[in-house]
Design a protein around this nucleic acid. Structure first.
Lengths: 225, 225
DNA sequence: ATTACTAACAAGCGAGTAC
DNA sequence: TGTACTCGCTTGTTAGTAA
């Protein structure tokens, strides 16, 4: 699957990031230095992976648009290069405090999750989340994070039910240590759920609609064991 | 050769950009999701291509450092992503006017070169170059340019001599149209040679040591024919 | 513990071709 | 024009192993 990134990148450079662009397999193959057949094959596979959307256009042609997942892949790649050239400005997400129970809330009622969070993040979470509504553009900044910045919370089974996995991203709000928690299954793109050792809403005197900035913590990545 | 970029990128993320880092083929393979043998193989090939430098370190280990050529490759890749995410700030190189005959000068005495420049760049070059001394860091910004921004001037033979190729990059200085000319063979990393329709030195009233900024022109890239 | 060879296998690729 | 299938050939990959 080593062709995925270069192929996607080439499509992105042609402008398939925002709208459908017309792509012929012959010309596309030429720009990639491969045959028409392989170009066709790659587009088929990319479509199967749901990294691009394809649409037939009159007399045999086709139009291509990169999906959200595809863009997330490219954005992560971009983040890598920013880090290489040390222009990785800190990743900050800004949004507004909002009410409503998120799914992350649910995690804080399960002992297995609480124990994992305490062990992995170093604090015992307050049993409640602070919800922050962000724009999809802000949300997509999370894709810039390297894998090393993401802490996986494992799922488990209890009472015959399965409890899913979640990603945690260590962060801070107004210098207060916290973490973004993202349940693996559910894909919102507009609300961040924040956990912390204390109740952030009262500690920071936040009310619905107040603007907040979440600073994601980056760690240096080393070889894995 | 599709492994080159991902392998180099991984090494860069580990810190092989500035100094030798210790790399074991087993662990390196693990981070790349390939076998120890393949990791070894890739490092050998990267070294053959002179994209990395290798050095043995005690009891079988090895140290890796990415070469200038390797970094140039990564920087070009980085430029692509900047363009995808539309954060491609204009590429500007700043330096100081200097004297001395550059090699580019030589091109402007050959009719075959003059004709090509006029045809490709749209102006008949003044028979002399403006030399601009830049830091290696500034110079390396040229690696961010996409291939589509670079115009190739072909070589030729005459009088039993071979005359080499050159790259031209359309640019401007103080809104005056010009181009950077880079002979293919010679690798300076500290002086830019500028050609233009008129004598820039007199037109812009420049003297040795004056600071100038060269703005590279980017064109939109489309599918090639 | 290393690195890197060889041999067997798998995956990637392009030519030819059908639609 | 266009896409995409099958079929050989080539290349990439791993296991086993030597150093």
């Amino acid at each position: 699957m080593s062709f995925v990134i270069p192929t996607l990148k080439t499509l992105a450079l042609k402008g398939a990031t925002k709208e459908f662009i017309s792509v012929s397999t012959r010309l596309f193959g030429k720009t990639l230095g491969i045959s028409q057949q392989m170009a066709s094959n790659r587009l088929v596979k990319l479509a199967e992976m749901e990294l691009i959307k394809r649409r037939r256009s009159g007399r045999g042609g086709q139009d291509i648009l990169i999906t959200r997942e595809g863009m997330a892949l490219l954005r992560k790649e971009y983040g890598d290069y920013q880090r290489i050239f040390q222009e990785a400005r800190d990743i900050e997400l800004s949004g507004k405090v909002s009410s409503g129970l998120g799914e992350g809330q649910y995690y804080l009622g399960q002992v297995e999750y609480i124990d994992q969070i305490e062990q992995m993040l170093g604090f015992k979470p307050f049993p409640g989340t602070l919800n922050i509504t962000v724009t999809p553009e802000e949300y997509s900044k999370l894709d810039l994070l390297p894998d090393s910045a993401i802490i996986q919370i494992g799922g488990f089974e209890a009472d015959g039910r399965t409890f899913g996995k979640a990603d945690c991203i260590p962060a801070s709000i107004d210098k207060i240590e916290c973490a973004i928690i993202i349940p693996k299954r559910s894909h919102h793109t507009d609300v961040l759920e924040i956990i912390s050792a204390s109740q952030l809403r009262s500690k920071l005197k936040l009310e619905d609609g107040d603007g907040v900035i979440v600073n994601c913590k980056l760690r240096h990545c080393n070889f894995e064991a």
